[in-house]
Simulated assay, not measured.
Amino acid sequence: MSTTIVIVIIVVAVVIILLVAWLLMRKRREHQRVEAEGIRDRAAEKEFEVAQQEARAEETAARGRAAKAESEAKAAQAEQLAQQAHMHRGEAADSRTELDKEWERADKVDPDSRSGDAPRED
């Protein structure tokens, strides 16, 4: 075998090895493209579901904010009513004191009253 034939065989073998390597790399890239497309398809299918979840979360947060605002308004209203009740109790106590004085005065004026016998019960 001459040196030229050995060199040609080695060159052909290297070319074949490089060609096979190139084909394998190309096949691998195509497989990766197909796999990536599958991943993208599954992600696109989940996109709608995730958007719905986000919308539900925002809606729930909005309802929470509305409930908080409503409870704050109710708390303010309750505080105002408590203050009014306190004022009404004070007015009622003053009125009760005046009324008791009127009863005592009536008892003092009435000659038939037994005001000295026992205290008056309401």
Results as ranks from 00 to 15, higher is better:
43 A>T: 05
54 E>M: 07
42 R>C: 00
35 E>D: 04
32 Q>H: 10
38 G>V: 01
36 A>E: 07
35 E>I: 00
49 E>S: 11
54 E>G: 03
36 A>H: 04
53 Q>A: 12
56 R>A: 14
50 V>W: 05
62 A>M: 09
55 A>L: 14
29 R>C: 07
43 A>K: 11
55 A>N: 08
64 G>C: 08
27 K>Q: 12
62 A>C: 02
61 A>K: 11
40 R>P: 00
38 G>M: 05
31 H>I: 07
54 E>V: 13
57 A>P: 00
52 Q>E: 07
37 E>L: 06
62 A>H: 13
58 E>D: 12
48 F>E: 09
43 A>D: 08
57 A>E: 11
33 R>K: 14
46 K>Y: 07
42 R>M: 04
57 A>H: 09
65 R>F: 10
48 F>M: 03
41 D>I: 08
60 T>G: 12
44 A>D: 03
58 E>H: 07
58 E>V: 10
57 A>M: 13
48 F>S: 09
47 E>N: 06
58 E>F: 04
32 Q>S: 05
42 R>S: 12
49 E>P: 01
31 H>M: 05
31 H>F: 08
52 Q>T: 04
49 E>T: 09
47 E>W: 10
38 G>W: 00
50 V>T: 15
62 A>R: 15
45 E>Q: 10
40 R>M: 02
30 E>K: 13
53 Q>H: 12
49 E>K: 08
39 I>L: 02
59 E>K: 15
31 H>A: 09
37 E>A: 12
29 R>A: 11
49 E>F: 09
60 T>Q: 12
52 Q>F: 01
29 R>I: 05
47 E>V: 10
53 Q>R: 10
43 A>E: 05
54 E>N: 09
36 A>G: 02
45 E>V: 08
58 E>C: 00
64 G>W: 01
49 E>Y: 06
46 K>S: 11
28 R>H: 11
65 R>Y: 11
44 A>Y: 03
60 T>S: 14
64 G>R: 15
60 T>C: 03
35 E>M: 03
54 E>R: 12
36 A>C: 00
61 A>Q: 08
55 A>C: 00
65 R>A: 10
57 A>N: 09
49 E>R: 07
49 E>L: 13
32 Q>K: 11
30 E>I: 05
44 A>Q: 13
44 A>C: 01
33 R>C: 04
61 A>R: 15
30 E>Q: 15
51 A>S: 04
64 G>I: 14
40 R>N: 03
34 V>W: 00
58 E>L: 07
56 R>D: 13
56 R>N: 14
53 Q>K: 08
52 Q>W: 01
32 Q>C: 01
31 H>S: 07
51 A>D: 10
43 A>C: 01
30 E>Y: 07
35 E>W: 02
